[in-house]
Design a protein around this nucleic acid. Structure first.
Lengths: 228, 228
DNA sequence: CATTTTACATACATGCATGGTTGTATATAC
DNA sequence: GTATATACAACCATGCATGTATGTAAAATG
């Protein structure tokens, strides 16, 4: 057919990416055919091969487009300056991540593809390291946040920031997978914020030997009003 | 060729399962060809099709054979009676799970296949529910264990057993995925037990206003001697 | 000992996904 | 305004994975 203008070409590129997202989500990465992607995007395989060298590059492009903004936001939230309590930064960044998944169909589908509909071998083995990088970044950021909280006295005594960071990372990752593995559960929007807050609350300092304070700080489902 | 005796047939069945484990691990489930499995097992595709209807059934059989014993062991450990502290049951069952992965190549490969080399669509969508079942079981068991600890006074005050169980499940699942995602890390054998013990230690009761006790109970890397 | 069933190996038919090639009409550069 | 690069569509060749059908020799059955 006729040649398209640059803007139109970019549009079909986006349509192909969007079609790939849905196709990968429904059929899994390896079973999806570029023919399916093309048809869903309203083009032929020729167009797909024009914009992307092969299925692997299409996958990487799709993933990158959706995940990069999320990582930036999380990183900036956790280490936000001028926080009354650095633990709030940890709490907020985790909450933001899960809210993004709960609110955006696209984001959730992308993560479902990455964690449940992709086989990490051959070309895709490299993605694993990519997936670890945000985790390592969170580990560093969280440890620093915990250390700041320790300095400010908002962290419980006797806890090691590094160990806490690893524990929190495991918690986030696990909750992540639980959410992705059972997306039909309608309680998540209420349950997840409660679990995240309970997780952080376990680590907050409590006035020693003050029963009232201990109760509010250690409660499993604290109804604290959000700061900031 | 010649017909084999029943014992020999069972042996080739096991060889096929073993070959499938390795093939799935190296090439991913969807990319592995039954021809590859057959060749690795020293038979032809005819033998594979004789013992298993198709790749899906082969996958299920492989998974079931390895995972069933693990689930039984974990369940019995967490709810073991006559424990001085029910929290030790939680700790021990989690430790046993990770030890199984760290010690057995077969077990680790099986989990890597399940979590990193399989796409959960079509025939395999049902596996997701299977994967959730152990989690739900652990949730029930852990909540009960936390409740028992609460009754015995070994649990910190102000904590909700149900919320704790969900938190611990998320922690275990997350640590699980971290371990599987970076198996080359040689520190896991030391790090994981420390993290598990630190996780449980955060929830143990501490004698209020006793600095010495608080320090030992809340320490991030407690060197407690194992009970039982 | 005759019959049947078992435990495979071998061969065949089918479909489909991939990658490459070619064609082409138009936007863009000069 | 001409030349060239662009943005695809259409066509083709190849290979490979699956499933099934058939062959077969020995074990199991009675």
């Amino acid at each position: 057919m006729a040649r398209k203008t640059k803007a139109e070409a970019e549009l079909t590129r986006q349509q192909i990416l969007e079609a790939a997202l849905h196709a990968f989500h429904v059929r899994g990465v390896s079973r999806t055919t570029l023919e399916e992607v093309a048809k869903a995007a309203g083009v032929t395989r020729g167009a797909v091969y024009w914009h992307f060298a092969n299925k692997t590059e299409l996958f990487f492009a799709m993933r990158e487009q959706i995940s990069l903004p999320l990582l930036d936001k999380g990183h900036s939230l956790i280490l936000a300056e001028n926080l009354a309590d650095p633990l709030d930064g940890i709490e907020q960044s985790i909450l933001a991540l899960f809210q993004a998944i709960l609110e955006s169909e696209r984001v959730r589908q992308m993560f479902e593809i990455i964690f449940l509909r992709c086989e990490y071998v051959d070309d895709f083995a490299g993605v694993l390291e990519e997936l670890n990088k945000p985790g390592l970044q969170f580990l560093v950021d969280a440890e620093l946040a915990y250390r700041r909280a320790q300095a400010k006295g908002t962290l419980r005594d006797g806890l090691d920031p590094r160990a806490l960071a690893m524990d929190t990372l495991a918690f986030v990752r696990g909750l992540f997978h639980q959410l992705l593995a059972s997306p039909e559960e309608r309680e998540w929007p209420r349950r997840i914020p409660a679990m995240v807050r309970a997780h952080v609350a376990l680590r907050r300092a409590q006035s020693p030997c003050d029963p009232a304070a201990a109760e509010s700080a250690g409660a499993a489902l604290p109804r604290r009003t959000r700061r900031q």
